[in-house]
Design a protein around this nucleic acid. Structure first.
Lengths: 202, 202, 202, 202
DNA sequence: GATGAATGAGGATTCATTCAT
DNA sequence: TATGAATGAATCCTCATTCAT
């Protein structure tokens, strides 16, 4: 007749473990992180971890996917449903989104993919299909719509949404390698957007 | 027709080995590369490698330095000695230099630093001091000189040489992670420069 | 009839391993004993050994301590609680104890310390504090008590308990180096004690 | 027509090398001493060392023999040619000889034999035949001669020359293991001799 | 389901020995 | 002879993975 102790749902376990793994990978990188360390952080035994993920590699993939999932979709949604003008949208929601990325788990995933991607081409593909491709398409959509609406003029820059990503990527890389050195990430991104808008404005 | 077993080229060995290591690291990353593999590529025994580099880590550092050394200085030199106008310089030598970077060993080093940099803060520092800092300073010099000469107007963009680097970095990262996927690196870099120049031209 | 692969005896393992290591070290010496050999003798895998002892050196220290612990205390106890006369004590329990030493694990530890002691000064200190110092003190106590009781006369010999140890040490060394050659250890020790007693008797 | 540079005789080389090896072994022990280290100390190349000694083991044996040779013979000579009374001889030349041993290369050899002897039974045999056996015989001769001359009485002690060696051996071992801790070696040896003489005097 | 003791292949490093020069 | 660059077998140690309990 003892009161049932609180037991974490086993349905939550996988996410708890991938969350712990993300933390660990973020700190030490994939290769240098021991599975035992992940288990400890998740408050779980090694054996149980292996019940959910057959190998360390599978855990790695699950981590990447867990970060990726639904993250870009929100952006796409906003793009599609916004009622703002193109420039307002870029300066508003898009800029705000971009500023958040370098400090988000996305940066960790980028680091992992950079270090380990070669050994996991399917993962790179997955990331490409689900994040990069969709993300770039969404940004391209914003620019194209601006052109359609007569807000922007068609030019090389409106065909290269990569240019919007570039300063974000630089910020991510900088943060990974030069954790200590200051870099005004926000200013960088803003300046790039200012430049771009000034350039493509009709 | 077998290669001579003994070659006795004490002076060349270190470079031969770091070159082999660069190749190996480029393919598999640092952690996944076995020392024996590097030795084999260099046509040398494990033991000899250890004669020149006390540890794998030291080899790693030597690789980074071997790539870095004298590479940036050439750029700086060109900046200081050019007789071109600022815009001509940017569109000419600088653009040409930037286009070459993503396919150069620098990309490998970036990847290594991204993956292993956390464990070697001194190396990150070294890279920062000898490449990043100097490189950014050189670019900043170009922009500032343009302002001094009345070719450019002073603005946010002239204070952020990082923006010149951003598309190059994106190209590097893209090349590392999405080796297969095409990306028109040159166009990316060119467009960014066009945009920048249009923006800062006096 | 194969031994069970998993035994799960966490508590016993360290002692099983140090016992196996003692055997192995006794046969081959520390440097020449491979860790794997110790593991095999203990019926355990290399990995498990490293679970209990972080390095071979730590295993070495554990072996020394395992032999040392509680061995001298028994002697000291006997010294303190005996009701025999001093001479009876020396000729009885002490002599009997001394005769046993050359064939005991202590001889192995002496050999290890002789060979490896220089590299492990803390271990030499530990051995000195816990065995040598205490043991000599106990023997000195026996002699001093004899003097106090009027059984012995105070002289150089009663101040040098080392002389009781000397033939034992010779026997140990002989046994290590000349395993084959016969030496009447017991007679050696007895004669020394006879000589000593004849010399210090009041 | 240049003056001939001084060149060490090649006949001296083996001894120079064994001397260097003795030093190195004394400091680090056999296993921990690298052949290169010995070569360096001898001011000779590794290759040349191998010209004189086919293996490290052979070098080891040469070291032991180099220390042993002619050392005991001097003692035996003195024993045979002395004109002193037995007691005078023991208290004089013999005591003096014994006091010198613990600080001599013999101590190093003892240590080496203790550590490595098991792997080189032929060396232990050699040492036994040339040092131990002869040395003990010489001491036995001293005691027996004393008995023959009526200076000593025949007893257990006169049959065990080992007892003369025992304190010397203790001193050697002490010096090896407890390099730091003080021990009045001379007093130890003297007291033992006093005791012995008092005991066997006719 | 959970646990963590146990395994062993894999990889970094050392060093006695060889041999082209 | 004399050198020291070169070799590679040997050995310590790690860590992903398994499995008895």
């Amino acid at each position: 007749m003892t009161a049932p102790r609180y037991r974490r749902r086993k349905e939550d376990r996988p996410q708890e473990i991938t969350a712990a793994a993300l933390d660990a990978f973020a700190e030490k990188g994939y290769a240098a992180t021991r599975v035992e360390e992940v288990a400890k952080r998740a408050g779980v035994s090694k054996g149980l971890l292996y019940l959910y993920f057959k190998t360390k590699e599978e855990l790695f993939k699950a981590v990447v996917k867990s970060v990726v999932i639904r993250r870009v979709d929100a952006l796409i949604d906003t793009v599609e449903t916004t009622e703002l003008s193109s420039e307002e949208f870029v300066r508003g929601p898009l800029l705000s989104f971009m500023k958040k990325v370098p400090a988000s788990p996305v940066a960790v995933v980028v680091r992992l993919l950079l270090a380990e991607g070669r050994k996991h081409p399917d993962l790179a593909d997955y990331y490409y299909d689900n994040v990069v491709s969709k993300g770039l398409a969404a940004m391209h959509r914003v620019l194209t719509r601006g052109v359609e609406r007569g807000e922007f003029r068609q030019c090389a820059a409106t065909e290269q949404p990569h240019l919007l990503v570039a300063p974000v990527m630089l910020s991510i890389v900088w943060g990974i390698v030069f954790a200590g050195k200051a870099l005004d990430t926000d200013a960088l991104i803003e300046t790039q957007i200012d430049m771009l808008l000034a350039n493509i404005r009709a």
